[in-house]
């Protein structure tokens, strides 16, 4: 089974090819605003390095967020187009799950934190399903970390620090580092963006378990919802002031 994985949820553009033995090739870049210009050459390069043609693929994997709108739109659109054109299923994963998967197990509780910009982050508390993604201010996350540390101490007496990974954790390191005792430990810059090879390995497992979907059903998860119609009473054209 061969999977092409596409990761554009945060500041990184990543492409990986993988099979059951693990990643076969990966290409990553931090192209700033040039996600669309970077992604497709990266897909071609990864296929060339791995000597796999698109016709040999069995599925497309894509990170659906939460993260940055522009990157997510580029990555999800590419995944849907490729899968639709090639007649392949799509495996989706959330950025926060990919960050967790990238951490070695046994390090304690991992809390992935993605930078949503404008003073907001998205995070996932330990042992929580992906559907319980939280979006809020770093101060709200700090309060949850403090609460988690209190609960853990009460339950187990002596607990180790939590591990915070992702670009949101690094950006708000000062605030989050002082949030709880014992102080959280921070992942390095190599875990700022969800590693695309981890997405590819997650996707192989998901395909094996039959967790995939039709490309038409794939939607990005932006993490910012605004459930209101615009009240356009003002849009009635030219008004005059007497």
């Amino acid at each position: 089974m061969r999977i092409l994985a596409i990761e554009t949820a945060t500041i990184e553009v990543g492409v990986a090819l993988a099979d059951e033995t693990g990643p076969l090739a990966s290409v990553t870049a931090r192209p700033g605003r040039r996600q669309a210009e970077t992604l497709h050459p990266a897909i071609a390069d990864a296929c060339r390095i791995a000597r796999i043609t698109p016709a040999e693929l069995d599925a497309i994997a894509v990170d659906i967020g939460p993260g940055l709108f522009t990157g997510l739109r580029v990555g999800v659109a590419a995944a849907k187009a490729l899968a639709g054109g090639l007649g392949l299923p799509v495996v989706t994963a959330m950025s926060l799950e990919v960050l967790i998967a990238a951490c070695p197990s046994g390090l304690g509780e991992v809390i992935p934190v993605v930078d949503m910009r404008r003073g907001e982050v998205a995070w996932l508390m330990p042992r929580s399903p992906a559907s319980t993604v939280r979006v809020g201010t770093p101060a709200e996350l700090a309060a949850e970390l403090a609460e988690l540390a209190r609960e853990s101490a009460a339950a187990a007496g002596n607990v180790g620090p939590v591990l915070l990974v992702g670009d949101g954790a690094l950006r708000h390191r000062e605030l989050l580092g002082a949030s709880s005792a014992p102080a959280p430990v921070f992942g390095g810059i190599e875990l700022a963006a969800p590693p695309v090879s981890s997405l590819a390995v997650l996707a192989i497992a998901a395909m094996t378990d039959g967790r995939f979907c039709d490309p038409a059903a794939v939607c990005p998860f932006y993490g910012r919802e605004a459930d209101a119609r615009i009240n356009w009473s003002s849009r009635q054209g030219r008004e005059t002031v007497s």
Binding site: L68, F69, T70, M116, R117, R118, E120, Y222, R224, E225, A226, D227, A228, R229, I230, W232
Partner: peptide, 17 residues
Amino acid sequence: LGHLQEVVDLALEEELD
């Protein structure tokens, strides 16, 4: 635009940030 989500989808936060 007709819905506030369409304004959110413009991703102006990324420009501001």
